[in-house]
């Protein structure tokens, strides 16, 4: 089934959309979330949550690239889960809970500003990525968006791991310079 057909199912509120998405992109989402969480059960939960988010967001969204759209949601959810887990480890569940409670007080304003800043950064990063060579871009995105290991990337691209790391280092430097030039306070 094509992405377009699946998205149409979402718009028709046909629950078959979930099954088709999971069938086509479940492993994608699982891989992205797994790279972050490194826990099978948490990853599975994350994928299920992703499907739920898709159901919530389509409509009104009508993504042209459903795989990327879903994978990005998975990444977002996985990171949230990761941060929560690590906050618990640092301060225990109580701290995390307190933090969540206080977040309710400030969350609206912060999120608006935060969202605006995030949008600006996102736009700048997209422009930056546009200017990269394809190979450098793939390495960079695979590492920092898909959270894939340098070893896996190297193997996949037929490079040495050190070459991948060097490429990443160069691109990071270039991104830093670019963002500074764009006026971001780093």
């Amino acid at each position: 089934m094509t992405d377009k057909e699946i998205v149409a199912l979402f718009w028709e509120r046909d629950e078959k959309a979930i099954a088709e998405t999971k069938k086509k992109y479940g492993r994608y989402c699982s891989a992205v979330a797994g790279n972050i969480l490194n826990d099978e059960q948490d990853t599975e939960e994350c994928v299920n949550d992703t499907m739920f988010r898709l159901w919530e967001n389509i409509p009104p969204e009508r993504p042209e690239r459903l795989g990327a759209f879903a994978a990005k949601i998975s990444r977002r959810l996985a990171i949230d889960a990761y941060r929560k887990t690590h906050a618990e480890r640092r301060g225990g569940g109580c701290v995390s809970l307190v933090f969540d409670e206080l977040a309710e007080v400030t969350s609206d304003k912060v999120s608006v500003e935060k969202q605006a800043e995030l949008s600006e950064i996102m736009a700048a990063i997209n422009r930056f990525l546009e200017g990269l060579t394809k190979k450098s871009r793939i390495i960079f995105v695979a590492r920092y968006s898909l959270c894939e290991s340098a070893g896996v990337i190297a193997k996949r691209l037929g490079m040495t791991e050190s070459s991948v790391c060097t490429s990443l280092s160069r691109t990071r430097s270039a991104l830093r310079a670019y963002l500074k030039k764009e006026g971001f306070d780093l």
Binding site: P63, A68, K72, R76, L118, I125, N126, Y144
Partner: peptide, 9 residues
């Protein structure tokens, strides 16, 4: 970096 353009993803 998780919100980059879908095409890069």
């Amino acid at each position: 970096l998780g919100e980059i353009d879908d095409k890069f993803f």
